[in-house]
Amino acid sequence: MTTATPAVTAPRRGRPGAALPFVRQTLAGLRVLLVLTVVLGVLYPLAVTGVAQVLLPWQANGSLVAADGSYLEQADGPTPAIGSALLGQRFDGDEWFRSRPSAAGDGWDATASGGSNLGPESQDLLADVELRRAEVSRADGVAPGEVPADALTASASGLDPHISPAYARLQVARVAAARGLDESAVAGLVDSLVEGRDLGFLGEPRVNVLRLNLALQTMAP
């Protein structure tokens, strides 16, 4: 505790800049950073990737699903993937359950994830909300006041894979009519796919739109 040796090995004579303590410490910093970069920037991520690819290949590669609902470990394998169970997609048309509004790029663009970033008093956002309310109310034939909040607002990621159970139930009549299905059968399908809170108290109840539409497709292609 009382020795006064410098913490950096004395440089060999003649090295440029070695006389300046700060330059000497920066050079030491470069050496330390180099070693740590090999460990933390190369070995660590590669080791985690290796273990993840062996033990948890489905999750590690993006929770991909095929058109028949089966799980895929690669997007460009023999069976084509139709998306990820974790990422929201665009669903237009009356025959699909729709996702929430998305502010990612032109909508659901996974190369431009993000939200609207509009504030709680924004007039632009207020106009968007009223536009979406009118659209949902018209498409689903419900009173404007019944449209739930998640159908009126853009998500944080723009890739929200879920909608609220209320928004899913609200769409049942339209989807059933468009596909010529019995309304109660579609309602039952929605109910069977409602996920509760994790462990009973984490997060919120929700319905995965891609899974719902996949199940629907299997029911009435």
Partner: peptide
């Protein structure tokens, strides 16, 4: 990863989405 976070060395892969458009993984 076990909970679903991705861990690979791949880039963007385009796939055809369920409703027929293209989407990027």
């Amino acid at each position: 990863v076990a909970l679903g976070v991705v861990q690979n060395l791949g880039g963007h892969v385009e796939v055809t989405s369920l409703a027929g458009g293209t989407t990027v993984m």
